[in-house]
């Protein structure tokens, strides 16, 4: 029976693209930001990173075992979720919060839906938001960057967005740091989550991903573009009350969210048109939450809300089948 003719349906040529390769490339793209966060925040950042990543891998293995699924930790998605979660936490996060976050991300954010590919929401963001709502004190105890060499354990500080919100609420005016001199935040001198530390490093990683064709430009461009455009409108209306669009761009988690979280293939629309709508919605919600909402930062909420809208967007952006004649009404 050796010379039997094997028949299979198309496609016959495979691009070699696998889940493992994509996850590996995304992790590579995050390396500059990870390195910078380690330099700026030192050992606490390392422990948060390790606990989240190892925790996610561990919980995924456990869940696969309990659910009698083939072990999926090798595809790297669990590890990536862990890294993204760590980048969304402050460096001073206690170990048990990091571990709980890993459990929520993997068990409630992903495996309960059936594993990778079935989750409607970005697992890392689910965990971040659950932790943020559950433990507001610990999750907003930000530390200013304290390099390993300085000899100080930690200096607490407000995030630029938090400082802005407090000042606007108390005085109705922007604080000075939001109107001038905020450009040095770009390279990474900023209090916040591990992954908020340097817009520059994240941007480099994001461009690498677009170059490697792991993500397309549509979501980041429309997300960041709409954030800039909408904040520019407010800024032009009253520059003493609403900050410069550039301030919105380089503070908070916008760059991390736009390149690494919103572009998650499982939870974002499939078509390019849908991606543009998705990105616009994220940008609009981010600005609305930042300027008028109760929380200083809105990127994670915005992405989760748009995740929920993804099936709807996909439905309305269904491409026309080639050769199909439009039905006469």
């Amino acid at each position: 029976m050796d010379n039997q003719l094997y028949l299979s349906s198309s496609p016959h040529i495979h691009s070699g693209e696998t889940t493992e390769r994509i996850m590996r490339l995304v992790i590579y793209a995050l390396l500059p930001a990870i390195l910078l966060s380690l330099i700026f925040f030192g050992l606490p950042a390392l422990s948060v990173l390790l606990i989240c990543t190892l925790g996610c891998i561990g919980f995924e293995a456990l869940a696969c075992r309990l659910m009698k699924l083939p072990n999926s930790i090798k595809d790297g998605s669990g590890a990536l979720t862990g890294i993204l979660l760590a980048l969304n936490l402050p460096a001073s996060t206690p170990w048990w919060i990091s571990l709980l976050g890993a459990a929520i991300a993997i068990l409630i954010g992903k495996m309960i839906y059936g594993g990778l590919g079935y989750n409607p929401f970005n697992p890392a963001l689910v965990a971040r938001v659950v932790l943020l709502i559950s433990f507001p004190v610990q999750m907003t105890r930000w530390t200013a960057p304290t390099p390993l060499t300085s000899g100080i354990d930690a200096v607490s500080a407000a995030t630029p967005l938090g400082e802005m919100k407090t000042a606007v609420m108390l005085t109705g005016k922007l604080p000075e740091m939001a109107t001038s001199g905020f450009l040095n935040y770009f390279s990474g001198n900023i209090a916040g989550c591990l992954g908020e530390v340097s817009a520059l490093a994240l941007l480099a990683g994001g461009l690498f991903l677009i170059y490697k064709k792991v993500i397309s430009w549509h979501i980041p461009v429309s997300f960041i573009g709409s954030t800039l455009a909408i904040s520019a409108i407010f800024w032009l209306i009253d520059p003493s009350k609403y900050p410069n669009p550039l301030f919105h761009l380089i503070t908070g988690g916008l760059v991390l969210g736009a390149f690494f979280m919103a572009t998650d293939m499982v939870t974002s629309p499939v078509t390019h048109k849908g991606m543009l709508i998705f990105g616009f919605g994220c940008g609009l919600l981010t600005i609305l939450i930042r300027l008028f909402g109760g929380y200083p930062e809105g990127v994670s909420f915005a992405i989760l809300l748009m995740n929920a809208a993804t099936p709807l967007i996909d439905r309305y952006c269904r491409p026309k089948i080639y050769g199909q004649v439009e039905q006469q009404a």
Partner: peptide
């Protein structure tokens, strides 16, 4: 450290769902 989420509305839905599961 109590987990504040559990006494907020999302906590109701999440614990109900997990209990049913």
């Amino acid at each position: 450290q109590p987990m504040l989420l559990m006494i907020l509305p999302p906590g109701a839905f999440i614990s109900m769902g997990l209990l049913l599961a």
